[in-house]
Amino acid sequence: MSLDRRTLLRAALGGTIASAYGMEPASAAGGHRRTVFVAGDSTAATYATADIPRAGWGQALPVFLRPEITVVNAALSGASSKSFADLGRLDLIRAAIRPGDVLLISFGHNDEKTEDPARYTEPWTTFQEYLRRYLDGARARHARPILVTPVERRRFRTDGTPYESHGEYPAAMRALAEATGTPLIDLTALSFALWSRLGPEATKDYFLWSEPQGLADNTHFQAHGAIEVARLVAAAGPQIPGRDRHALHDPAIPDDVLVWPPTRPAES
C-alpha cells in the first residue's frame, strides 16, 4: 500500500470513527451520505487508544469501503441482541438510519451466557425474536438489514483440529434469514474456515495474544485480525454499499491504517 493511500485511508477512518459519537451519520453536499451501521458486540466494537492493539472488525470495516461511505459502528462491548435493544441502543440506530442505509446485525457471543438474564437469549425463541426487532426497525426506515452470524472464537483441540463454539445460535440466525428473506453473511463459517487454514500458532497473530504481556485472549482481535475479519464481512456482503475492490484484493493492508479514538465511541 502506498504512503499516499495509507494517509488518505487513515484520514477517512478518523472521520468515520468521529461520526460514531451520538450515532449521527455524516452529511454530504447535496444530501445524505450512504451509511453502514453496525449493531454488535465486543468482537465488532471500536476501541480507544488505551486499548491498543485491541480492535474490532467494525472498527476496520471502513478499510474495505470507498471514502464516500460512512460507517457508524455502534457495536457495544458485552452486548447481546437482548441487552443492546433493552439499553436503547437499537432505538438510537432507528432514529439515525435513513432510506438506503445498511444495518449489519451481529450477535451471539453474549446471548450464550445462561448465567446472565440481562443478556441471555434462547437460540430458537428469544434470540430470533430480538433479531426480528432489528430487521423490522431497519425496514420501517426503508434501510436494508443484513444478518451476520457471530465470528468464531480461536478454539483448537490438543491435536490442532479446530472446533466450533457457538452452539445453535448461527443456525438459528441462518434460519431467520431464510424465513424473512434477509441477506446473510455467514461469518461463523467464514472465520472458522480461516482459523482452520491458519492453525493454532498462526491464529495467535490475529487474536489478542502477546507472550511478553501474558495475554491469551481467544475471542478478541488485535489490528491484523480485525482487518482480516472485516475483509471477510465486506467480501461476503455484496449488498454493502461502496465496497472497495482494490482493498479487498490487497493482501498486504498494514495494521497501522487503523485509527483508535481517545475514547470508545459506543461507550461515550
Rank of each mutant, 00 (worst) to 15 (best):
M1H: 09
L8K: 15
L9H: 00
G15W: 02
A18E: 13
S19Y: 06
E24N: 08
G31F: 05
F37E: 00
A39L: 06
G40S: 05
A44L: 08
A45Q: 10
T46M: 07
T46N: 05
A48T: 07
D51F: 06
I52H: 12
P53Y: 01
P53D: 02
R54T: 09
G56R: 00
Q59F: 01
A60M: 02
V63Q: 00
L65N: 01
R66E: 12
V72C: 09
N73R: 03
A74T: 06
G78S: 10
S80K: 01
F84K: 03
F84Y: 15
L87S: 14
R89A: 10
R89N: 11
A96D: 02
P99Y: 05
L103K: 00
L104F: 04
S106D: 03
D111G: 09
E115W: 15
R119S: 15
Y120G: 04
T121V: 11
W124S: 13
L131R: 00
Y134K: 00
D136E: 15
A143V: 02
I146W: 01
E152M: 14
R157P: 07
T161G: 02
S165G: 13
A172D: 03
A177S: 14
E178P: 14
E178C: 13
G181H: 09
L184D: 08
L190W: 02
S191C: 06
A193T: 13
R197S: 11
L198F: 06
L198C: 02
T203Y: 01
S210Q: 10
S210Y: 12
E211R: 15
E211A: 13
P212R: 14
G214P: 13
F221V: 13
A223R: 05
A226F: 00
V229H: 03
R231N: 06
A235N: 06
G237L: 04
P238F: 12
I240P: 11
P241S: 05
R245Q: 09
H246V: 11
H246C: 05
A247Q: 08
P251F: 00
I253L: 11
P254D: 09
P254T: 09
D255Y: 09
L258I: 03
L258P: 01
P261W: 05
P261L: 01
